[in-house]
């Protein structure tokens, strides 16, 4: 089984596709049902943000290892408008689309590690890891 996958996100069904491959990999790595749900939900949030705010991009999912620790890494990247104020989008409830504004802060809480790398007018790369306990 593939311990790595990359899904292009161009429409809503691609979000489902990214989620599914994330769930499969999480299962394969030995994550329990709750963590599987957390990982799948995080992928859903990031993929939907790509679809909504950047139009298109990709979600890469892979197994990572660090000092004997095993984990799953999500990397969501796009060449969209970028995020101007990263502090602001990490506030609960901040949204520019009339959503709940809970996506990014939510992903941070669902996962163990979370970084945003974004440049205005160039794009955004969000990387997030969940470690296996």
């Amino acid at each position: 089984m593939n311990i790595q996958s990359c899904v292009e996100v161009r429409n809503e069904w691609d979000i489902v596709k990214a989620r599914q491959s994330g769930r499969n990999i999480a299962k394969e790595l030995g994550f329990g049902t709750v963590d599987q749900a957390r990982i799948t939900t995080a992928i859903s949030e990031l993929a939907r943000n790509i679809y909504l705010y950047a139009g298109s991009g990709e979600v890469a999912i892979e197994r990572v290892e660090n000092g004997g620790k095993l984990g799953l890494k999500i990397e969501a990247s796009d060449s969209g408008p970028g995020i101007k104020d990263i502090r602001k989008v990490m506030e609960d409830g901040f949204t520019t689309s009339g959503g709940l504004g809970a996506g990014l802060p939510g992903v941070k809480r669902l996962m163990d590690e979370f970084t945003i790398d974004s440049k205005e007018n160039e794009g955004t790369i969000i990387t997030s890891i969940k470690w296996l306990r």
Binding site: A37, R38, P105, L110
Partner: peptide, 10 residues
Amino acid sequence: EIAQTIVNLG
């Protein structure tokens, strides 16, 4: 598990 993720999402 859904209850948990909903709580995590805040």
